[in-house]
Design a protein around this nucleic acid. Sequence first.
RNA 1: UGGGGCGUCGUCAAGCGGUAAGACACCAGCCUUUGGAGCUGGCAUUCCCAGGUUCGAAUCCUGGCGCCCCAGCCA
Length: 564
Amino acid sequence: MSDNEAKSSSNFIKTIIAGDVAAGKNDSRVHTRFPPEPNGYLHIGHAKAIWINFSMAAEFNGLCNLRFDDTNPVKEEVHFIESIMEDIRWMGFDWDDRLFYASDYFPRLYDFAVQLIKMGKAYVCDLNAEEIRTYRGTLTEPGKNSPYRDRSVEENLELFERMKAGEFPDGSRTLRAKIDMASGNLNMRDPVIYRIMHATHHRTGDEWCIYPMYDFTHCLSDSIEGITHSLCSLEFEDHRPLYDWFLDQLGVFHPRQIEFARLNLSYTVLSKRKLLKLVDEGYVTGWDDPRLYTLAALRRRGYTPRAIRTFLERVGVSKRESVVAMADLEFAVREDLNKHAPRLMAVVKPLKVVLENYPEGQTEELDAINNPEDESAGTRKVPFSKVLYIERDDFMEDPPKKFFRLAPGREVRLRYAYFITCREVVRDDDGNIVELRCTYDPESRGGSSPDGRKVKATLHWVSAEHAVDATLRLYDHLFLVENPLATKEGEDFTVNLNPNSLEVVEGCKLEPAAGECVVGTTYQFERQGYFCVDSKDSSPDNLIFNRTVTLRDTWAKIAKSQQK
RNA sequence: UGGGGCGUCGUCAAGCGGUAAGACACCAGCCUUUGGAGCUGGCAUUCCCAGGUUCGAAUCCUGGCGCCCCAGCCA
């Protein structure tokens, strides 16, 4: 992490940890972990969990491990491991040499299970999945004991050993914890802790045909690693009694589980299932489509990790289920990019301007500031000549009140260049405006006039003969409504998709320096927004930029209110 | 009469018995060679509701109400 990111404000987890540290618990040591299952791509919701775990550790001079929770071979794939690690590193966090896998602990977990059996706290159950569900009871009625619940320790030991040896088919038996079939908490009704799965695991191969369940694995993995604070999301609150039970029964190191609310963002969806549908059904181009909020998409869109961290910091941590306004995230990127992004001039929808009194064939190199917020970014030269392009939206033949830009007879400033005055509007046969004939004031070179004359607008521009062509992808919210999941009966969230979430504009005219833009840095196209070279589709002879976010557009707001 | 959790500004969110931080959004103004940025000011007499305790309550107690999660051999 860099810069002086705002020190976090208070939150309940920090308060708890600080209390534990002050009380000398675990020798005042703080150790957390981020435990993803390698079965999908990370999104900004995971970024919150990553940030909480790593930053809590950092704040208390502790450590944070990366541990892949890989206990279900049929759902997990190696390629997710690499992408998850790449995303965490991109976010700016480092687990040093503390990369672990729950599968590393399979042998020890097996021993723990045997220990439980010997203590009479676990048994092999021959009920099938359907029967187990029936025996479990319902939310309001207690369950019934399995007929296999009272097998002898010896029989359990032998059967579990045979399960491990591969003597039984998938689903035929399970190892269950013997707790309480009448518990109000369904997780305590003799939960399954091992199931038979003749599946090849991406790390352990065919060494095992029985795999431990999450509840059993997670608490013990935390314990093995000496995790002091096991931070997870709210839905695991009901599992905490079970988390504690295993650790207490086995008498091992006992981390403290603390649950917090996951992140939700307006105008988008984050659940894996929803994202999968968008990708599978072609509503977006892939998991890294810049309209999505996966970390890969955010990266491709031009977001900086620092902006995301600041955003997370401001959002905070609590147990309240909430939806954070997309505007908060957008504010954070703008804020960061404003300070760090090099400026460039780019005309999205070009309108030709001919300066009638500018010498034919002449070219000047004008000085432009790379970043007004950062003097050390220096200056660059921008070529100027007789024929230019300005933004179509910067000219109106019959301007409404408060429109300060170019109009017939009006004078404006071309940024870093000259004052120009519109003299004539040229149309094609269909009446479309195709060109503006203007004059420039040679005395105003650089953008100010010796007589102190003021103009109300400054426009960006590009010299026609020096311009670099590019395609711009203008992204807008993927959904039209704050909560895409709120639909009428029988409707699917995809009805809320924004049909205009992507506008591709070809033939955009950029200043020459845009040809040197590199993948991985985001630039500000002055008066337009922040853009970055698309990491997948752009090439030197076919430049493609993605719009990260627009600049705040006060004029748009005024224009909109004038329409009403 | 199942269990667990949550209710503070439009949106997040501090606060932990001493008289409602901050951020975003919004509004007004200043400034400006990006209608960007920046700056200034405004924006909860009130904390889901009702009682109670107390000199004093968003904070404690009691009772309501509302919302979320749990019946995978998923995590």
